[in-house]
């Protein structure tokens, strides 16, 4: 898998296919990006589990924090990692011990660990790096267009009015993969300095 740029179909397939998401590094602080993303994904109908050993005993949007992936005790479809690149490998190694194996490892904006990605892919998991599922969901559904963001998709179909807890259609015509060519190139230059 080329991790510099992702075809929309790959991301669309993941977001349409998963239901249970464990978010490692979820924060109860209302100004943290992980809080924004957790709340949004709950509102879009995902079964979210907050994982953060520092907040066990508390809950996020009514879902109790667990200390580690091993403590979840039920099958999970996707692990969304809200930690910086250096903390990715141990989490992927922990994920590899789960049974059944999660289907997807997702690393947040700014996070990338190619060795960890290779390990997860070798075990049959799909991997997304340096992306945010909230942004990608908002982009593919065009909900993010409210913010003047280029969704890189178009559609001549009438969209439903989104309501609380509703999954939106992600089936729009793609202009290209995820980010723009220029943004992807700039991200690659940063992760791969020559």
């Amino acid at each position: 898998m080329n991790h510099d740029t992702y075809p929309d179909d790959y991301i669309r397939g993941i977001l349409n296919g998963v239901k249970v998401i464990a978010m490692v590094g979820a924060s109860p602080s209302e100004i943290r990006p992980s809080f924004f993303a957790f709340k949004y994904l709950v509102q879009r109908g995902y079964d979210m589990i907050p994982v953060n050993p520092g907040h066990v005993g508390k809950s996020l949007m009514g879902r109790p924090f667990v200390a580690s992936l091993a403590d979840i005790g039920r099958p999970i479809d996707m692990i969304d990692i809200f930690r910086s690149s250096v903390h990715i490998m141990p989490i992927v190694e922990e994920a590899l011990k789960l049974s059944p194996l999660p289907k997807v490892i997702w690393m947040q904006l700014g996070a990338r660990d190619d060795a960890a990605a290779e390990k997860a892919e070798a075990a049959g998991m799909k991997v997304v790096m340096n992306r945010c599922p909230k942004i990608e969901y908002g982009r593919l559904s065009s909900e993010i267009s409210w913010m003047g963001v280029n969704s890189r998709t178009i559609s001549a179909k009438r969209a439903p009015i989104p309501t609380q807890g509703m999954r939106l259609s992600l089936n729009r015509t793609s202009v290209g993969g995820g980010a723009t060519t220029a943004a992807d190139r700039a991200a690659k230059d940063r992760s791969d300095p020559t």
Partner: peptide, 20 residues
């Protein structure tokens, strides 16, 4: 997927039928 060209985007990008 076929990526839409410039003239298509000039007409369609950002716009879709009003949900209501």
């Amino acid at each position: 997927e076929r990526a839409p060209g410039f003239a298509t985007l000039a007409i369609h990008a950002g716009a879709q039928p009003d949900p209501t």
